[in-house]
């Protein structure tokens, strides 16, 4: 049996859920960024899988969207990690539960 589109989508859904788990349940800011990156990777996997299993067009649209999404994810990671460092300088912690200065 060769892998069907369903199996790829389930793997991508599992990767998304693991990223969501990391983003929602960890307290450390770097873990939240890792979770967001994993969710973006799951979305890219979906794009590539739908490109591979769908009808073929001349500009390979799914691949292009995945490439642009990877570039934007890299920019997001750079800014996010810079924010983690800036927050650490201010508050001397990276625990997001302690960053509650704006709480009403």
């Amino acid at each position: 049996m060769t892998p069907t589109l369903q199996i790829f989508l389930i793997v991508s859904g599992a990767l998304f859920s693991i990223g969501l788990l990391a983003a929602l349940s960890r307290r450390h800011a770097i873990f939240i960024l890792i979770g967001i990156e994993m969710m973006l990777a799951a979305a890219n996997l979906n794009f590539i899988a739908f490109w591979r299993f769908g009808p073929q067009h001349q500009p390979p649209t799914g691949v292009m969207i995945a490439i642009f999404s990877i570039a934007i994810a890299a920019a997001e990671a750079a800014v996010g990690l810079a924010m983690v460092i800036a927050v650490y300088r201010h508050y001397h912690t990276t625990n997001v539960d302690q960053l509650d200065q704006l709480r009403g």
Binding site: L20, S25, R26, R27, I30, A78, I85, T93, N95, D97
Partner: peptide, 29 residues
Amino acid sequence: VLIVFTILLTRRDVGKDRGFNWSGVAIAV
């Protein structure tokens, strides 16, 4: 590599946060 650099630059409070929010597991599942 960027993540590793950030971990090394924010190292001082590594041992402090052991928090884990279990409702996140339920939402993910």
